[in-house]
Design a protein around this nucleic acid. Structure first.
Length: 877
RNA sequence: GCCCUCAUGGCGGAACUGGUAGACGCGACCGACUCAAAAUCGGUUUCUGAAAGGAGUGGGGGUUCGAUUCCCUCUGAGGGCACCA
C-alpha cells in the first residue's frame, strides 16, 4: 500500500469535507429502514467546547455510526441550549448584546464539533434562542394553559439575590442558587407554574418501566418525587371553635402510633399559629425567629427542635377525655401535608428530641420482636422498626401494619363535624414547577395583563412574542421591565391599554422538548408534526449524571403535557439513558500554591517518581490530586490543542478506551500518546495486510489445499468481531477497544509468522483481505477519519460511513475445540483440550486421564466429578 | 440523620448469568536498531519461591464441588436527599 506515516491533519479535514459535500449524515423522515434516534445532551454555548463534550459526543457518535452500519435510519442531531444568564453577564461586561455573544459562541463551537468528525445531521441544527424555536415553545405554553396545566399563583419563592431572579426548588442546592451560589431568600411573588404535580403519580410509577435507565437515576427521581401513603386526620379542638374552625388537621404515615401521641405540632406559618400569635407577643416573636432562620443547611443542621405552647388543646380521636397540647414548632413545614403533625416521641426521632426538650413524655407503642413489653424503654433513639403493638387499647397485639389499617378503618367511618375524621391520602414531596424568571435572555411568557379582562393569552396569530433588541443591562433587575415601550400593548380582547408579562421562562423549559423539535425542526406551523411519533422515544440518550433530576424529570413531564395537548403520543421521551462520567486530570501548583495548567509544565520520570517543572523558569511544581477539569483549578486541556496536535481520532479513541464510560476518565498525556501510537500501528497493519492480500481479488485456484493459517486468521477476525459487537451493543466502549487491540495484536503475530512466500496461498490472501476490510469496519465508529483513509487506500469505492457492518460468521467465531480448566477439589490443576460438543462422560474420562489429575488423585478414586459443559471440570476427592 | 453505589497488580481497568482472576492499555525494567538520543521493534512485569509449589480481588464470617460475583458484618471512598411527619 504505502509506508509513510498517517497524517491526521490532512486526512481529517479532507474526509469531513467529503461527508459534508455528500450530505452523508443527512437523515430523511421517510426513509423506510427501521429508525434509531441517538441524542447527546445539547451544549450550552458558553464559548468553547471542553473535554466533557468530547467524551459525550464521541460516545454518541460511536452509537450513531454503529447503528447506521447495522442498517438503521439514524437520527443524530445537534443544537444549542442558548438562553440563560451567562449571556446577560457577558453582555453587561462587554456592553454588547446577549445574542451577539451567544451566536458568536455557537459559531466557534460548531466549528469545534465539526473538527471532531461527528456524524451529525447539521441540517437539523436548532438554537433555543431563535424565534422560530421559542415561537413554538410559546404555543406549547398556551396549549398547556388552555389544558389547565399552567397556573399563576402567589407563592413563597426562592429568590436569588445575586441573579435577581426566582429559582425552582430543584435549582436550590444546599440553600444556594445553583448558578450564582448565593444564599437563597424566601419571598412572596406571583409566579407562573407548570403543574408537574398533576403527573406525580405517573412520573413515579413509570420509572419501573424505564429498564434501560441507570437504577441510580430512577432512584434519585423516585426520592425526589417522594410519594408517601398516609392518613389525613382531624383532631377536635377541646375549647370549641377558633378562627372559624373546630378541628385541626394533621397528616401522618404512622396512624398505628396514635396511642403514643404526646403533642400536636404546627408550622410557624400555619393559619392557626398566626391567629393565636396576635394576642401573644412570645409566640409572634418565635414565629418571626423561625422565618428569619430560612432554609440554609447550616441553620438546619444545627437547629434544635424548638417550639412554643399555644395553650390550645385537642382531643385524642379514641379517647375524648385525653387532651393533647398544641405547639408551634420550628421543624414543621407548612407546604407539606397540612402543615401540622401529631408527635409520637417513642417512634420518631424528631418527636423524641422535641418531647425530651419540653418534658412531654414518651410511651412506646411498638415493642421490638423478642423484647419483653414490660421492660422496653426508649433511650436517646426512637424505635422505627417492626414489632407488636403495646399500650394501645384495641390495637394491642397487632402488627404495626394491621394496626395502621385498623386505625384508618375506624377513623374513616367515624364522623367529626359532618365529615369522616380520617381519610387516606397520598402525598408527594414534588412541588409544581415555578418557571417565571425576571430575566431578559429567555423565552417571553406569551400573556398580557389587562385591567378589565385579567390575564389574557397572546393570540396564536401574534406569536412569537419576540424579545426587543434595544435593551440595556446597566441596572439590576429585568431589562424587559425597564424597557420603555415593549411591555405596553393593547389588550387582545378589549383593545384597551394593557401590559405584557415581562417574566421569561426558566431555561429548563427550552431543553424539556428540544428532542421532539429535532424530528421536524423547521416546521413553522406547529411545535411537532407526525414525524415526532415516528422518531420518539429517543432510543439512546447520553449525558451527564448532573441532570439526573432537573432536566430529565422536566422532560418526562413535558412529554406527558405534550401528549395531553396532542403534540405527541409517547409519555416517556428517553427509552435508553446513559449517564457518562466526567473527565478528570491531575492538578499542579507552584511554590506559592498557584494553580498551573498542564500546558505550562513539563513532567519527567525520575528515580524518585514523577516530577514536574515549569516550562519557562524550570521551577519545581507539586503534582496534586486528580480532579474534575475546571477553570478554577486550571487543570483543563483544550480539545482544540489535542485535535490540532494528535487529530480527532486519537482524542476520540483515548476518551473511549481507558475507563468504563459511566466512570470518570483520567486524561493523561501518556494515555493520549498511546492512542496516537496506535493510530499509526493500525495504519501500518492495514497496509501490511493489503500487501499480503495482493492478488486476492482473482478467483482462488481450486486445487490449492486449504491452509490452517488462513483459517486461523479468519477465526481470529470473526471471534473478535463478535466480541466488538457485543461490547458496543452494551455501550462498553472500553472493552470494544480492548478487543480491537487484541485483534490487531493477533493479526500482527499471524503476519509475522508467515515465513516463506509458499505459505501465501490464495486462500490466505483472501483471509488477509477480509481481515483488512473487517478491521477497518470495526474501528470506523471510533476513528472514522482513519477508517475512510484506510478504506480508500485499500482501493475500495465509496465511504466506510456508507458500508454495512462486517458480516459475522458464527461458525468461525466459535471454535470446535475448546480448552477447559480441570480442577481437583476446587483448585486448578490442568487443562483439557476437547471437542466443544463432547459428551460429559467423555469429558470426565479424558479429564481423569490427565497426568496432573492422576498425580493429584494419588490412587484415590474421585467422590464426585462436576462437569459444567464447555466451562470447567471439577474432581472432588 | 436517611438512602444508594463502589473497593481487583505501581496505575486505568477486564472477568456477560457463581466456573482458568489480572484481558487490553499506561508506566517500569531488560534487549535490538543507533556514534548517541528520540521514534520504532522484541521480551518481562500480582506477591513469594531457584523450581515444584504456595498465597492472593478492602478486613472478618457464611452458603457452595467451586465465590471478584450470592448472604451477614466491619472498615474505607464517593454520590443523592435533607426537619417531607
Amino acid at each position: 500500500m504505502r509506508s509513510e506515516r498517517y497524517n491526521p491533519r490532512e486526512a481529517e479535514g479532507k474526509w469531513q469535507a467529503v461527508w459534508s459535500e455528500r450530505e452523508t449524515f443527512r437523515t430523511s423522515n421517510d426513509d423506510p429502514r427501521p429508525k434509531y434516534y441517538v441524542l447527546e445532551m445539547f451544549p450550552y454555548p458558553s464559548g468553547r467546547i471542553h473535554m466533557g463534550h468530547v467524551r459525550n459526543y464521541a460516545m454518541g457518535d460511536v452509537v450513531a455510526r454503529y447503528k447506521r452500519a447495522r442498517g438503521f435510519n439514524v437520527l443524530h442531531p445537534m443544537g444549542w441550549d442558548a438562553f440563560g444568564m451567562p449571556a446577560e453577564n457577558a453582555a453587561m461586561q462587554n456592553k454588547s448584546h446577549p445574542a451577539t455573544w451567544t451566536y458568536a459562541n455557537i459559531a466557534t463551537m460548531r466549528g469545534q464539533l465539526k473538527s471532531m468528525g461527528l456524524s451529525l445531521d447539521w441540517s437539523r441544527e436548532i438554537a433555543t434562542c431563535d424565534p422560530s424555536y421559542y415561537k413554538q415553545q410559546q404555543k406549547l405554553f398556551l396549549d398547556f394553559l388552555a389544558a389547565g396545566l399552567v397556573t399563576r399563583k402567589k407563592s413563597k419563592v426562592n429568590w436569588d439575590p445575586v441573579d435577581h431572579t426566582v429559582l425552582a426548588n430543584e435549582q436550590v442546592i444546599d440553600g444556594r442558587g445553583w448558578r450564582s451560589g448565593a444564599l437563597v431568600e424566601q419571598r412572596e411573588l406571583t409566579q407562573w407554574f407548570l403543574k408537574i404535580t398533576d403527573f406525580a403519580q405517573d412520573l413515579t410509577d413509570s420509572l419501573d418501566e424505564l429498564d434501560r435507565w441507570p437504577e441510580k437515576v430512577r432512584l434519585m427521581q423516585r426520592n425526589w418525587i417522594g410519594r408517601s401513603e398516609g392518613l389525613r386526620l382531624r383532631f377536635e379542638l377541646a375549647d370549641g371553635s377558633l378562627s372559624g374552625t373546630e378541628d385541626l388537621e394533621v397528616y401522618t404515615t404512622r396512624p398505628d402510633t396514635i396511642f403514643g401521641a404526646k403533642f400536636i405540632a404546627i408550622a410557624p406559618d400555619h393559619p392557626l399559629a398566626r391567629d393565636i400569635a396576635e394576642g401573644r407577643p412570645d409566640l409572634s416573636a418565635f414565629i418571626d425567629e423561625c422565618r428569619r432562620m430560612g432554609t440554609s443547611v447550616a441553620t438546619l443542621e444545627t437547629a434544635e427542635k424548638k417550639g412554643v405552647d399555644t395553650g390550645l388543646r385537642v382531643r385524642h380521636p379514641f379517647d375524648p377525655s385525653w387532651l393533647l397540647p398544641v405547639y408551634v414548632a420550628n421543624f414543621v413545614l407548612m407546604d407539606y401535608g397540612s402543615g401540622a403533625v401529631f408527635g409520637c416521641p417513642a417512634h420518631d426521632q424528631r418527636d423524641l428530641d422535641f418531647a425530651r426538650a419540653y418534658g412531654l413524655g414518651v410511651t412506646p407503642v411498638v415493642c421490638p420482636p423478642g423484647e419483653p413489653p414490660s421492660s422496653f424503654v426508649i433511650g436517646d433513639v426512637a424505635y422505627d422498626g417492626d414489632g407488636l403493638m403495646i399500650n394501645s387499647s384495641f390495637l394491642d397485639g397487632m402488627s404495626p401494619v394491621e394496626a395502621r389499617d385498623e386505625v384508618v378503618r375506624r377513623l374513616e367511618s367515624k364522623e367529626l363535624n359532618g365529615r369522616p375524621q380520617g381519610e387516606r391520602q397520598v402525598n408527594f414531596k414534588l412541588r409544581d414547577w415555578g418557571i417565571s424568571r425576571q430575566r431578559y435572555w429567555g423565552c417571553p411568557i406569551p400573556v398580557i395583563h389587562c385591567e378589565s379582562c385579567g390575564t389574557v393569552p397572546v393570540p396564536v396569530r401574534d406569536l412569537p412574542v419576540t424579545l426587543p433588541e434595544d435593551v440595556t443591562f446597566d441596572r439590576p433587575g429585568n431589562p424587559l421591565d425597564h424597557h420603555p415601550t415593549w411591555k405596553h400593548v393593547a389588550c387582545p380582547e378589549c383593545g384597551g391599554a394593557a401590559r405584557r408579562e415581562t417574566d421569561t421562562m426558566d431555561t429548563f423549559v427550552d431543553s424539556s422538548w428540544y428532542y421532539a423539535r429535532f424530528t421536524d425542526p423547521t416546521n413553522q406551523e406547529q411545535p411537532t408534526s407526525a414525524a415526532v411519533d415516528h422518531w420518539l422515544p429517543v432510543d439512546q440518550y447520553i449525558g451527564g449524571i448532573e441532570h439526573a433530576i432537573l432536566h430529565l424529570l422536566y422532560s418526562r413531564f413535558f412529554a406527558r403535557a405534550m401528549k395531553a395537548t396532542g403534540h405527541l403520543s409517547v409519555k416517556e421521551p428517553f427509552k435508553g439513558l446513559f449517564t457518562q462520567g466526567m473527565v478528570v486530570h491531575e492538578t499542579y501548583r507552584d511554590a506559592n500554591g498557584a494553580w498551573m495548567t498542564p500546558s505550562e509544565i513539563r513532567i519527567e520520570q525520575t528515580p524518585a517518581g514523577r516530577r514536574a517543572w515549569t516550562l519557562d523558569t524550570n521551577e519545581p511544581i507539586d503534582i496534586g490530586s486528580i480532579e474534575k477539569m475546571s477553570k478554577s483549578k486550571r487543570n483543563t486541556v483544550d480539545p482544540d490543542d489535542i485535535i490540532g496536535s494528535y487529530g480527532a481520532d486519537t482524542a476520540r479513541w483515548f476518551m473511549l478506551s481507558d475507563s468504563p464510560p459511566e466512570r470518570d476518565v483520567i486524561w493523561s498525556e501518556e494515555g493520549v500518546q498511546g492512542a496516537a501510537r496506535y493510530v499509526q500501528q493500525l495504519w501500518r497493519l492495514v497496509g501490511e495486510l493489503d500487501d499480503a492480500a495482493v492478488g486476492a481479488d482473482r478467483s482462488p485456484d481450486a486445487g490449492q489445499p486449504s491452509t490452517q493459517v488462513a483459517t486461523d486468521v479468519r477465526k481470529l477476525v470473526h471471534a473478535h468481531l463478535m466480541r466488538v459487537e457485543e461490547s458496543i451493543e452494551r455501550l462498553r466502549f472500553n472493552t470494544a477497544i480492548a478487543e480491537i487491540r487484541k485483534l490487531t495484536n493477533g493479526l500482527s503475530a499471524a503476519l509475522a509468522g508467515i515465513e516463506s512466500p509458499d505459505q501465501m496461498t490464495s486462500e490466505l490472501r483472501l483471509a488477509c483481505r477480509e481481515a483488512a476490510l473487517y478491521l477497518v469496519g470495526m474501528f470506523a465508529p471510533m476513528m472514522p477519519h482513519l477508517a475512510e483513509e484506510c478504506w480508500s487506500a485499500l482501493g475500495q469505492s465509496g465511504l466506510v460511513a456508507d458500508q454495512p457492518w462486517p458480516v459475522l460468521d458464527r461458525s468461525l467465531a466459535v471454535d470446535d475445540r475448546i480448552v477447559i480448566p480441570v480442577q481437583v477439589n476446587g483448585k486448578r490443576r490442568a487443562e483439557l483440550t476437547i471437542d466443544r460438543a463432547a459428551e460429559a462422560s467423555l469429558v470426565e474420562a479424558e479429564a481423569l486421564k490427565l497426568d496432573a489429575v492422576v498425580r493429584e488423585l494419588d490412587g484415590r478414586s474421585p467422590r464426585k466429578v462436576i462437569i459444567v459443559p464447555q466451562r470447567i471440570v471439577n474432581v472432588v476427592v
